[in-house]
Design a protein around this nucleic acid. Structure first.
Length: 643
DNA sequence: AAAAAAC
């Protein structure tokens, strides 16, 4: 029988038997304590962590760092850093053992180590409790049901395939579905309306003038997985569509922003408002809850950032700013880089009127952040994890937060994000204003809208979908063995290129492969230290490196000037991801290309995905050296040269 | 199934 296997017949192994272990320990104590070399106090060779720190192992981040150090270019820079880390590590581990266990350790990270480092008896007693904590967990299952489900696509698939066989255009099939959805929504409406009418302020007249736009906010996912309750909310998300032409000649000042803010916006390069900004700014200033949907790169940060600052200014009402004042506005983002980037836009606006911002996100020491909070800030910009952490520590008090913004709001409602976000929003002032923004804002935000928003207005820009011209989409079907070469040829260019992979490991691997073929590249993903993440992103921003290989950590919101090509080395797994990834190029009206490299067996799924994203992209077979690669990369082809 | 987000 293998050593690790439980004995048959249900009898517990000896070292799970408390009586046996008690005897064992008594016996060992008589002999002068356990001998070195083993893991648990029950073993004869047990050593306390102080005597014998655990063997050091590379964690994911370190593995990734090491992978990067393998490359000659980095070796020199990083060597001292590395040695420092190595010395620090055992010490850190001691701290961990010494400090009181945090609640979140138990709930979120039931760790194997915990079991090993404790006596078996203790573990026994602990076990039922553990099961409790599982029940205590916030209702995961609820989210799963609630979420706009990918499974819906799955359900449709057999039917789809039949259509495809007849070469029926995918797009039309989708359109055919939509009216049905509308009816579904409509049926649920009256109930909700009645409830809300009683308490909400008068709607703007313009809304009633545009009934025909109502449907534009309809979800792209099929609705049958939402409960009727959510569909009611769905219906409330009527979008007021602003026409791009409505914005002609309107200035930020006209929209209600103050002089200093307008001037700062000018310095930031925003001379006059983009449509989504013109649409949302007045409502934000009016104190309404706002949902804003604007294409990637359409200026959403200013759309909420500028009026938010203006509002804080109005609300200050003569009270003096004092040390340690609590923040009055909160901006939440899904990634640290995005939080940082938002701050880079909002901070100058805030400073221009004497308000302070601070970034609160993980991966960096909290000292500076806590220091800033102590001095007093007006606007907190950050990611959920660290914000919750500082709340728990009593260092961040959101009770004065009157304006909360969720950037990439639909993503913030995804599994794993929603619950922290809900907990954070519950800590803000109950009647506070809430602003939700995303390029792919859909009914996935229903969970937040029902709990936190009061009579929200929804804005989008008319006729603005992702496929409106500035981005050229292609799909290349390639043999697996050609993939590296193909990607290398695509990325071997002078302009900035962003490559997406589905996993962190593949991002690392692809960086190596590209470097092997002579294409300089750096990686961006969650296994890297925050310092390296920022450094590598900056290398692309500054143009010192032309190719960045990233996971979807870089898919949303990140703005880098002049990325002219987005390569998807793995196809995205949802249409929204496709839209966000491709939105890294073609920003602010510029042109860009997106190419997705897929194996033959993904072609069907790719077509489905494109149709959901409402994007037309030619799908062609490609081999290394093909003209189409040069064309996408923006190199002259043989045909160009001879003509 | 993966990615992101906390010491």
């Amino acid at each position: 029988m293998p050593k690790n296997k439980k004995p048959a017949g249900g009898r517990p192994a000896r070292n799970f038997d408390p009586d046996y272990m008690a005897n064992r320990r008594a016996h060992q104590a008589k002999k002068g304590g356990p001998r070195p070399g083993s893991r648990s106090p029950g073993h004869r060779g047990y050593r306390t962590p102080e005597e014998s720190p655990k063997k050091e192992r590379w964690d994911a981040a370190e593995r990734a760092e090491r992978a990067e150090q393998r490359r000659a270019g980095d070796r020199r820079d990083e060597q001292p850093q590395r040695r420092f880390d190595r010395d620090e590590r055992p010490q850190r581990r001691d701290n961990r053992d010494g400090r009181p266990r945090r609640q979140f350790d138990r709930e979120d990270r039931p760790r194997r180590d915990d079991r090993d480092s404790r006596g078996s008896r203790f573990q026994r007693d602990d076990r039922p409790q553990r099961r409790d904590s599982r029940d205590d967990r916030p209702p995961r299952r609820f989210d799963r049901d609630d979420r706009p489900h990918r499974r819906s696509d799955r359900d449709e698939r057999p039917q789809r395939r039949q259509f495809d066989r007849n070469d029926r255009p995918q797009r039309r099939f989708d359109n055919g579905e939509r009216p049905q959805r509308r009816q579904f929504d409509r049926d649920e409406r009256p109930q909700r309306r009645d409830i809300d009418r009683s308490e909400r302020p008068q709607r703007r007249a313009s809304r009633d003038d545009r009934p025909q736009r109502r449907d534009s906010f309809a979800p792209r996912e099929t609705p049958q997985h939402f409960t009727p309750h959510d569909d009611v909310v769905l219906e409330r998300l009527e979008a007021e569509a602003i026409q791009a032409s409505d914005v002609e000649g309107v200035s930020f000042g006209d929209l209600g922003l103050g002089e200093n803010i307008v001037r700062t916006l000018g310095e930031l390069g925003a001379a006059s408002p983009f449509p989504i900004q013109a649409a949302t700014i007045p409502d934000v200033l009016a104190g309404k809850d706002v949902l804003g949907r604007g294409r990637t790169g359409s200026g959403k940060t200013i759309a909420f950032g500028a009026p938010l600052v203006e509002r804080l200014l109005e609300n200050r009402g003569g009270t003096k700013r004092d040390m340690g004042r609590k923040p009055r506005a909160l901006i939440l983002a899904p990634t640290r880089e995005l939080a940082l980037q938002i701050d880079r836009t909002v901070q100058p606006i805030a400073r221009s009127v004497g308000l302070f911002t601070t970034q609160i996100y993980g991966g960096v020491p909290q000292g500076r952040q806590v220091g800033a909070l102590k001095r007093g800030v007006d606007i907190v910009i950050g990611t959920p994890g660290r914000i919750e952490d500082l709340i728990e520590q009593g260092r961040l008090d959101l009770s004065d937060v009157k304006v909360s913004v969720l950037d990439e709001a639909d993503h913030m409602c995804d599994l794993g994000f929603l619950e922290p976000v809900q907990r954070i929003l519950r800590r803000t002032a109950p009647a506070g204003q809430k602003l939700l923004f995303s390029a792919t804002l859909d009914t996935g935000v229903a969970a937040l809208v029902t709990e936190f928003l009061v009579d929200p207005t929804v804005h989008e820009v008319a006729g603005e979908d992702q496929d409106s011209g500035s981005i050229d989409h292609r799909v290349l079907v390639a043999l697996r063995e050609d993939k590296v070469q193909l990607l290398s040829e695509l990325a071997d260019r002078d302009e900035k290129t962003l490559i997406f992979t589905r996993t962190r490991a593949y991002a690392e691997q692809l960086v190596d492969e590209l470097e092997d073929t002579g294409v300089r590249a750096v990686a961006l993903h969650g296994d890297l230290s925050q310092g390296r993440r920022q450094r590598n992103l900056e290398r692309l921003t500054s143009g010192r490196v032309k190719v960045l290989v990233a996971t979807d950590v870089a898919a949303r919101g990140i703005h880098v000037d002049d990325i002219t090509l987005v390569i998807q080395a793995d196809m995205p797994d949802e249409y929204k991801t496709y839209l966000h990834r491709s939105g890294r190029t073609g920003r602010a009206g510029k042109t860009g290309r997106v190419v997705t490299v897929i194996p033959r067996n993904r072609r069907r799924r790719m077509e489905d995905l494109l149709s959901r994203a409402e994007i037309d992209a030619p799908i062609v077979d490609a081999f290394p050296g093909d003209d189409v690669i040069d064309e996408i990369a923006g190199r002259p082809t043989i045909a160009d040269l001879t003509s």
